[in-house]
Design a protein around this nucleic acid. Sequence first.
DNA 1: GTCTATAACGAGATAGAC
DNA 2: GTCTATCTCGTTATAGAC
Lengths: 213, 213
Amino acid sequence: MAIARKKAALPAGGLTPTAAATAILDVAEELAQTRGYNGFSYADIAVKLGVTKASLHYHFPSKAELGRVLIERYRIHFGAALLAIDEQARDALEKLKRYVALYSAVLSNERMCLCGMLAAEQATLPLPMREALRLFFTDNERWLTAVLDEGRQAGILRFKASTIERARVLLAQFEGAMLVARSYGEPLRFHSAASYVLADLSTREQSRPGRRS
Amino acid sequence: MAIARKKAALPAGGLTPTAAATAILDVAEELAQTRGYNGFSYADIAVKLGVTKASLHYHFPSKAELGRVLIERYRIHFGAALLAIDEQARDALEKLKRYVALYSAVLSNERMCLCGMLAAEQATLPLPMREALRLFFTDNERWLTAVLDEGRQAGILRFKASTIERARVLLAQFEGAMLVARSYGEPLRFHSAASYVLADLSTREQSRPGRRS
DNA sequence: GTCTATAACGAGATAGAC
DNA sequence: GTCTATCTCGTTATAGAC
């Protein structure tokens, strides 16, 4: 009773994810986003799924391989989300707002961006994971650069310096804001920082809430 | 031949650091900043110091205690550095530049800010460490808020929104920029992001290098 | 594909000699 | 204050039955 392969989604020597592999990745992702790569074990995943550690090794022979596929899948999902934004959002500012919403959704589950998380542990990661990590950030920078370009040309966004430079600062802001907000257990810290950043970028004066509440 | 206690530097149930304790903390700090709290062990420290694990436990009974003292010391050192900046820098912009230099010095050793690092692993840390972590960030926010206030009143800095809000964004920018720069192994990414942020904050037009090089 | 069983190792921690 | 020796547990990973 083999489970049919649904999609050949993961390139670069990746597995064809079966339902079991997907379930493993889902749990591993949650653990990695909350506890970090060095903060969870096969045992943790096995308990949550109600299976044995050995069966996990059938799907992912090594933790290094699990980690690599994890990042690859995250990057692909993120890329799909960015594509959806491109299709749905009317202008650059709205795109950025939805981009922020992506991060907010992560934080609201008390998670951190997977790649921001793993970036901290970088020095302890196997090489393939480090490479996958950089790819994720580069993807994000590229997308942000395009959006900033679009917004500037449309007169919707305003900023100094080159778009790539501004894009990198933007990415750093969001990752850093998540990191700090999470250590206070206050997602609001992220939202307010993100709102400020977007307002600062926008040419239209925002209806900033002031500090009355 | 007991080593004389030099200073009672660490409050809150902390140890009086002997030379040995200091050496342990120095090594632990480097490891924690490069590999994270879950990325190093007593064995790692022992090897680097040429002693046994058991002797480490004499100074720091548990890793949790070592971790707590580590953050406390880091916070105190950082606080002293901020005080030195207050005394030496002429204006708010120069203070911020020196603040950035503090981060740069860390990065140049391929380290991450200790607390940015531990913030990622937050969920796996014992409670005393989490509290110490928040204290560090709050200290930083307070100092940045004061500097932003000073600079705005002097007409040297310009920004929207409240100073505390701007201070939080600033902190997030620096922590995030370190995080991402380190995952590329390119400290330049941090420097360029930090320069942009400071230039954006300054009322004086900076001599921004353009992109000719 | 999932299981039991176990190997091989490293972790944090303690007892007690020196 | 540092050592040797040891304990206990958790870790990744494998062999082989079902």
